[in-house]
């Protein structure tokens, strides 16, 4: 009997290792690439043996893109800053709007509430290009094109439905009795929302916020169309590495590593919330 369980243990370990390899390999490979020159990356057959170099990172930080043909300026750090500004403010706005709305949808069933909630979610399904074209025209007319404000607004298409739907589920999971109990204890509905509903849905709100942040960070198409060079986030900025004289793989890799670093760090830090938030559901009385 111990036999089977030992075999089982090893099989399980093997399967786990396989899955981890599958998901981690691209990241591992890109980190390797970022430490090589274009020549060593492109040699055939590929080899793991090379002399690591930080030239790619230095180039990005210095804002100079040197290739064997020419040298050009690139403002990757500015892109990184844009990404941070756009994502953080989008999530902040989405939380301020989405959490109270989610609470309303969870607690007050009124005529058409399901329809409204679903319409909001359906924004996620629409192909972004469909929305973008008319939006660009409008934005140009009212002067929102190429502003942070305009971008943050459009980013709500990504963040708001996500937060609304995830957080609503968390509010629904809180037993209404818990809230009744607090109100019967003599507190107003607003105090109940602040002292009971918000803290109890906390892990869910954190998880939803984090997901929204990652989605906003990874967005490409909105910024590509609506933002000019000085407002572009990293996703769009990386295009600059595709030059007329060739693709700078090493620098792209370094840029990718730098651009996923903040989300990765955030995800690792908030892992506890994420797991708690996404898998367990909220509280049981």
């Amino acid at each position: 009997m111990d036999h089977t369980s030992l075999l089982e243990r090893w099989l399980r370990r093997f399967a786990l290792a396989l899955i981890v390899t599958f998901f981690m390999f691209p990241i591992f490979w890109i980190v390797l690439m970022s430490l090589q020159t274009n020549e060593t990356i492109l040699r055939s057959p590929p080899s793991m043996a090379f002399v690591p170099t930080f030239d790619n990172y230095l180039a990005i930080l210095a804002g100079r893109l040197d290739s064997n043909v020419a040298s050009m300026g690139i403002d990757f750090l500015n892109n990184l800053m844009n990404s941070i500004i756009l994502s953080v403010s989008s999530v902040a706005v989405a939380l301020c709007l989405g959490v109270p709305a989610a609470y309303a949808f969870a607690r007050h069933k009124f005529r058409g509430s399901e329809d409204i909630a679903f319409t909001l979610l359906s924004f996620r399904f629409a192909p972004p290009l469909l929305v973008l074209l008319p939006l660009t025209l409008y934005f140009q007319q009212i002067g929102l094109a190429d502003t942070y404000l305009g971008l943050v607004w459009v980013y709500q298409l990504i963040c708001l439905p996500l937060i609304l739907w995830i957080v609503r589920g968390y509010f629904e999971d809180i037993s209404p009795d818990i809230e009744y109990a607090y109100r019967i204890a003599g507190h107003s509905w607003f105090a109940t929302f602040r002292k009971i509903a918000l803290p109890l849905a906390g892990p869910g709100i954190a998880a939803a916020g984090l997901l929204a942040f990652i989605f906003a960070w990874n967005n490409f198409i909105f910024a590509l169309v609506l933002a000019s060079a000085d407002k572009q986030p990293v996703t769009v900025g990386a295009l600059a590495f595709v030059t007329a004289s060739g693709i700078q793989y090493g620098q792209i890799a370094a840029a990718v590593v730098l651009s996923i670093a903040p989300t990765l760090a955030l995800a690792l830090w908030a892992q506890r919330y994420l797991v708690e938030g996404l898998s367990l559901g909220a509280v049981k009385g």
């Binding site: 009795d177 818990i178 009744y180 109990a181 109100r183 019967i184 204890a185 003599g186 507190h187 009385g285």
Partner: peptide, 20 residues
């Protein structure tokens, strides 16, 4: 009158304690 102004006390079947 809203529940907080009715001056009542209530105990629930599922206890409804505030978990936090």
């Amino acid at each position: 009158v809203p529940p907080e102004h009715r001056g009542i006390g209530m105990a629930f079947q599922n206890f409804a304690l505030f978990p936090h």
